[in-house]
Design a protein around this nucleic acid. Structure first.
Lengths: 260, 260
DNA sequence: TATCATTGTGTCAATAATACACACTGGCGA
DNA sequence: TCGCCAGTGTGTATTATTGACACAATGATA
C-alpha cells in the first residue's frame, strides 16, 4: 500500500515541478483623509492613461507583511503606518476580465516580454490597506508608473485589473474594522479637534452622526486627551484640541472592544 | 527621462525573471461540531507521527476559491459547504521556525527532492476555514498523509509549520464572524433543537449563555422555522425541532446585521 | 406515583443608544 | 460698537436593547 502511494507521490511531484504554482504579489489600497474627503492613492501606468493601485512584489527572503510595509514606504515616503491585510484575490479572470491589454502593450516593452515572461500572467494578489496622514505623504510613482497621486474616493475612475473591486472590499473591511477598533491615528494630525475626528468617522462610514452623542461616545473610550483650546482666528468659539493617548489606544486596539 | 526609466525597467524585469516570486498554496481549517465539542480535521504526514492542517495547491487555470472548495471536497467528500478565506500567511520563518525537517526527511523522498525542488521552500499560504457537518464528512488523507481524522479543538497537538497559529487566527475570525452573520447551517443537521443550537454558539464562543435570552434573540432574527416536537424517548419534556429558513438566512448573511 | 433531568416561557431592572435645544465665543460687516 | 453668524460646548429625557432571574410542564425511570 505504502509503495503504490509513494509512486503516486513521485508522479505528483513531477507534475508539481513542471507545472509551477501561481506566484503571489500584493496590492495596496492607501487611504488618506483631507478636507472632509476620503482619498486613495493611485498610479498611472507608464505611457498610458490607465490608473491602478500601487502594487508590490515579495522577495524570496522577505516576510509578506514586511513587503507590504516596504511597498507602502516606497509609495508614500512614510513608515510606521497603520497597515492591514484585508483579502487575497485569486480569480484567474481578474486579469482577463479587467485588464486592458492594449494598455500593457503600450508600456514599450519588447515583444518577448509580454508574451513569454508573463508579467501579467495569472497570479494571486494579497490586498493590504493603509491609513495615511494625507499631509505627510509624498506620493511617488514606481518604475511602472508615470504618475502617482491622490483621488477622491468617489471620483476614482475605472481601474485596470480587479482594482475597483479591491477598493470596495478594502472599504468594507475598513468600515467593519472601525466598529471594533479605534481608527484615526495615522489619518489625522497629532492634534485635532473633535469635529475633525467626527468628520473622519462620518466620511469613512458614509453617514452623519449627532455631535453630542459622538463626543460622549468617543470620550467614554478613554483614548483621548484634551489639550488647550485651538486659537485659529475663526469667527466662532475656539474648539479644544485632542490627541490620542497611545497607551489606551493600543490597549483598545488589542482588546477589540470598541463598538461603533 | 522616459528613456532612463525604460532602462531601469528592463533591468528590473531581468531581476524579476531570474529571481522568481514566492509561490502560493492554501491551508484549510475545517471545523466540525459533535457532542458539544468543536473539532478540527488534521492529517498525519506520511511515515511520521507529525500532524498538520490539510492543504491544497492552486492550478494555473483555477480560481483561488475554487481550489479551496476542491481541496475541501477531497478531504471531506462534501461540497456546497461554508468556506471562508480568513488570512494569508507569508512569514519566511513560518517554515524555519515551525518545521520539523527530520519529519520531512522521513517522507521517503529522494535526496534531490528536499534539497533542490523545495517542496518546503518558502511560500505564501492562503488560509480558509470551513464549517462542516461532522456526521456527513468522511475524512480522507491525501497523498502526503497516512491518516486524516477529527481532533477536539482543545486536544490539538503541536502541528508542523505555523499551523497552530493558523487555527488560532481561524477561530478568532470565526468568533467575530459569528457576531455579524448567522452560523449554524453546515454545522448542524437539517433539523435541530434550540439547546443544540445554543450549545454550538457556546462552544464556538467559549462562554455559556442564558437559555431564555438566547432563544429570544435567535428567534428575533427570523431565520428559524419551528417544526414538530422531537420524540426522542428522553426522560424529560420533548424539545421542538427547528430548521433554518434559508431565504431569511441568506438575507441575514448578506446584510451582516446579525449582532451577537 | 414520586423523582429527576430537561424543556418552555415572561417580567423587571439596568444599561446603552438616541433624540433633542440652548448658551457661549469670536470675528465680521453694517 | 453692536448685532449677526458660524461653529462650538454641554445635559437630560426618552426609547430600545440587554441581562438577570424562577417556576411550571413533560416523560421516562425507579
Amino acid at each position: 500500500m505504502a509503495e503504490s502511494k509513494s509512486e503516486l507521490l513521485l508522479n505528483l511531484i513531477k507534475e508539481y515541478i513542471t507545472q509551477t504554482l501561481p506566484s503571489v504579489s500584493l496590492d495596496l489600497v492607501i487611504f488618506g483623509f483631507h478636507d472632509g474627503q476620503l482619498k486613495i492613492l493611485l498610479m498611472r501606468l507608464l505611457h498610458t492613461e490607465h490608473w491602478c493601485l500601487p502594487g508590490g512584489r515579495i522577495y524570496q527572503e522577505e516576510d509578506l507583511e514586511a513587503a507590504a510595509y516596504r511597498s507602502l514606504q516606497e509609495r508614500t515616503g512614510l513608515h510606521e503606518l497603520f497597515l492591514q491585510q484585508f483579502y487575497t484575490f485569486g480569480d484567474v479572470a481578474r486579469y482577463r476580465h479587467y485588464t486592458n491589454r492594449e494598455a500593457i502593450a503600450k508600456l514599450g516593452l519588447p515583444d518577448w516580454f509580454t508574451k513569454d515572461v508573463n508579467l501579467i500572467s495569472r497570479d494571486v494578489s494579497v490586498g493590504y490597506y493603509a491609513l495615511v496622514e494625507f499631509t505627510r505623504a509624498s506620493p511617488t510613482p514606481d518604475l511602472f508608473a508615470d504618475e502617482c497621486r491622490w483621488w477622491n474616493i468617489d471620483e476614482v475612475p475605472t481601474l485596470l485589473f480587479d482594482h475597483n473591486r479591491m477598493i470596495q472590499v478594502a472599504l468594507k473591511t475598513l468600515r467593519r474594522q472601525l466598529s471594533y477598533q479605534p481608527i484615526g491615528y495615522n489619518l489625522l494630525p497629532d492634534k485635532f479637534t473633535m469635529p475633525q475626528l467626527q468628520q473622519l468617522y462620518e466620511t469613512i462610514l458614509g453617514q452623519s452622526m449627532d455631535r453630542r452623542n459622538f463626543q460622549k461616545r468617543i470620550l467614554s473610550y478613554d483614548i483621548l486627551e484634551r489639550l488647550e483650546k485651538l486659537q485659529n482666528g475663526k469667527a466662532h468659539k475656539a474648539p479644544y484640541l485632542y490627541r490620542f493617548n497611545m497607551d489606551q489606544y493600543q490597549k483598545a486596539l488589542e482588546e477589540e472592544r470598541f463598538l461603533f
